[in-house]
């Protein structure tokens, strides 16, 4: 029994190597690491508001003001500065009182920008806010992007990988051969799950270590690996399900498009912005994504109900895949 499982495992591993699955994973890992280290961390910046002031000659104005205010030489220059920095605020002294000029953002943001410029004009002292979190801006960006890319990699590429292998096996007639071997049928599914699980876990560990890059990487790793394991098993089972039920790889690509675009897009939008849709709570992938994100940020744990539900869905999917597999075997004769 153990021997047949090992040989199945070996066969699946060889299929993955010949299908260049590991090359694809390595390529993705390099691409993502380069993107995070050279691109995302350097480009995602939002500086504070620029404040520009113009005082015509002969007009009296407060001599003392914050050095954050940039004095410009003409009215035109002030408008030019604002058109380049549309978040900025212009202060113009036409009479005794200053006039504030700004591009419309939103009512509340505009109120704040005006009050901000006023406080700079009065040289009010700003006090540093109290920090209650433990991440710096860069750490947050690294964790956020690593989490998103890991999620995409597992739901998109892992899903695709298992399908390409199953379709190849279907084509090669491996299913038919398997139907007459004495090994338990569940082994066929289990060996594939195990190979994909291990490769996803290695991918997750490397992505985390290369990109989170602080001493915290090893601290968060167990939770990240747990979430990766859950997601990997679910996606591999869904991938197997689709590829057993669908006729060929092209039909499968349709299902893949739906997963990659229409399932993951609302999850990312809801999880990363304050635009909350009430229905998103019913989206199972939202919870899986949040589980992953909370693991990366070492944020509140998910609780026993979440893990029980994951376990139940894995068993349910496994049972479903087994049924589909038996159907396929009987079809193959």
């Amino acid at each position: 029994m153990q021997k047949s499982f090992c040989s199945l495992l070996k066969k699946d591993l060889q299929m993955m190597i010949s299908g260049k699955f590991f090359l694809l994973a390595l390529g993705s890992l390099i691409l993502y690491t380069l993107f995070i280290n050279l691109g995302y961390v350097n480009f995602m910046k939002a500086p504070g508001y620029g404040v520009y002031m113009y005082v015509p000659q002969g007009v009296s104005y407060p001599e003392v003001f914050s050095d954050k205010i940039e004095v410009v030489q003409s009215e035109q220059e002030l408008y030019d500065c604002l058109s380049e920095d549309t978040n900025g605020i212009g202060i113009m002294y036409k009479g005794k009182e200053p006039e504030f000029v700004l591009y419309y953002g939103s009512n509340t943001i505009d109120n704040h920008r005006i009050a901000y410029a006023q406080s700079l004009l009065k040289e009010k002292e700003f006090e540093d806010p109290i920090v209650v979190g433990k991440n710096t801006t860069e750490e947050k960006q690294r964790k956020e992007m690593s989490c998103e890319l890991l999620f995409i990699e597992i739901i998109a590429v892992g899903f695709l990988g298992i399908a390409s292998i199953l379709f190849k096996e279907k084509q090669m007639g491996v299913m038919r051969v398997y139907g007459i071997t004495p090994a338990p049928k569940a082994f066929f599914i289990l060996s594939k799950l195990l190979v994909f699980l291990i490769s996803d876990l290695i991918f997750a560990a490397l992505l985390t270590i290369f990109n989170v890059r602080s001493s915290e990487a090893f601290h968060i790793l167990p939770r990240v690996l747990l979430q990766t394991g859950i997601l990997s098993l679910i996606m591999a089972l869904i991938g197997m399900c689709c590829s057993l039920l669908l006729k060929d790889f092209k039909q499968f690509s349709l299902a893949y498009l739906v997963v990659a675009l229409f399932i993951s897009a609302p999850v990312f939008l809801s999880a990363n912005t304050s635009a909350q849709n009430s229905w998103i709570k019913w989206h199972p992938f939202y919870h899986l994504y949040m589980g992953m994100k909370n693991a990366f940020f070492d944020f509140q744990s998910e609780g026993i109900v979440y893990f029980l539900l994951c376990l139940c869905s894995i068993f349910l999917l496994f049972w479903f895949v087994k049924m589909a597999f038996m159907r396929e075997l009987s079809k193959e004769g």
């Binding site: 910046k45 508001y49 806010p129 109290i130 920090v131 209650v132 979190g133 991440n135 710096t136 801006t137």
Partner: peptide
């Protein structure tokens, strides 16, 4: 007093 998590972008800190 304002509390922040410390991981905000510069604009929010300001």
């Amino acid at each position: 007093k304002v509390l922040v998590s410390g991981d905000e972008l510069e604009l929010f800190k300001e």
